[in-house]
Write a protein that binds this DNA or RNA. Structure first.
Lengths: 231, 231
DNA sequence: GCATTGCTGTCACTTGGCTGACATATCCAC
DNA sequence: GTGGATATGTCAGCCAAGTGACAGCAATGC
């Protein structure tokens, strides 16, 4: 089980917010907000907007990314059902610095900032949970940042895939299959490189039997080999 | 006052934790922890250690950095008196992912994790404050990360200097002087490049009258010109 | 059905910044 | 003071990765 040490580089995060609420709390939270539906490629919010809501994802996937100079996008993470997003801007004030885009049809719960603050302040352990969520993201981002500084593209992509596998992976026989469909461009935006570079790097990995791609979903064929690319 | 728009790119952060406490709270916090002294270049904690304390800086400066592959260091930020650090690891669990090093003689208040949690849970607005601190760091790190992806070294250094000026700058006649002494190596570790590159980039800036260096402290001679390097 | 748009694959060309090396300058400890 | 450690300045050579360009291949919509 050596390779798993890498997948577990960062221990499993308490990313699921909803799961940590009891029935009464969940009910109270729902009463505070309203249900919203978004279609594929709709923006839930975008960088620069004031940002006075916290969102809880009930279904679908949301991509959180940051616009960078010259129209580039830096993808920070994908939110899964049960997770919060838009929390940091609300806690801190000063408007959104990131954008949130529905990757597919999404259902979410939208709660206004002031109501959420009251909700949290009345329930100390939820305040702690919120701190945990923020802390996890801080750590993940720190790790991504350090990788970007010190690893070459191939290594960054290998690490990314292992990280994604820990969160979005489903074991399928001897393979580990990502549930999240990704384009080369999106991978490039996650590791800070260009699409062509990703194409050629993934090409190498396919050729050497590390992984395959099926319907835009990465399939890890050898965790062993992949972990080795990680340095 | 155009150039100030850049310095203010990210609005002033509520970085000072202590300042937001009233006398009674501060007193209670002090009662929970113990005072510790560190000499220049002492580690307060280092990446990999379990990390069961939160620290409040009362005097001096602490450098927070993350070890990266091949012995590189990635400097995330410098803590100033009044600020917390070590908060994320405690909120989240799972040990330290960063190291904290005293840049000079430091006095700090060390509070055990469980005590701090109780302290926070009993005071909802302090929970909110903690969330603000984490959120601010998340945003700052996001900004640094995006810069690293999309800007070349010169631009990154210019942006770094403006960012530092907003936090550590003191106006001195027409100059804006950083209170924080920095080596080229440290600047390199903050923008993700190498020492030699920083030396030559700063050399260019000196030659073109953008800044000067006095006793390891950057002195911005023209915010105008510096902001222009920012793109 | 066809057309438009977006994704993948490949490749020749260019370059920013890393590397390693060395000289000088400055600081600190003893 | 003197000696070692640490910081700065400069430079030639090299390479990882970006750039731009183009061709084939899905999808998706009308």
């Amino acid at each position: 089980m050596k390779p798993f040490l890498f997948v577990m580089q960062t221990p499993p995060a308490p990313t699921d917010f909803i799961q940590h609420l009891d029935a009464a709390e969940l009910c109270a939270l729902h009463a505070l907000g309203r249900r919203e539906l978004y279609a594929r490629n709709d923006f839930v919010f975008s960088a620069g907007s004031p940002g006075r809501n916290v969102y809880f994802l009930r279904g679908g996937r949301v991509k959180i990314f940051q616009p960078a100079a010259s129209g580039r996008e830096v993808i920070l993470w994908f939110c899964l059902p049960g997770e919060v997003f838009g929390l940091a801007e609300v806690a801190r004030g000063g408007g959104r610095s990131v954008s949130a885009l529905a990757c597919e049809a999404c259902e979410l719960l939208c709660v206004a900032e002031d109501r959420f603050k009251l909700f949290v302040m009345a329930r100390p352990h939820i305040a702690l949970l919120s701190m945990q969520v923020l802390s996890s993201r801080l750590r993940l981002l720190g790790e991504m940042h350090a990788n970007l500084v010190s690893d070459d593209v191939d290594t960054r992509i290998a690490k990314l895939i292992l990280r994604l596998a820990a969160r979005h992976g489903v074991r399928h026989g001897s393979e580990l299959r990502l549930t999240l469909p990704l384009t080369h461009q999106e991978i490039a935006d996650m590791v800070g490189t260009r699409r062509q570079t990703v194409t050629s790097c993934l090409g190498d990995m396919k050729r050497s039997g590390v992984l395959a791609i099926d319907n835009h979903r990465l399939v890890i064929e050898s965790e062993e080999l992949l972990a080795r690319l990680t340095d």
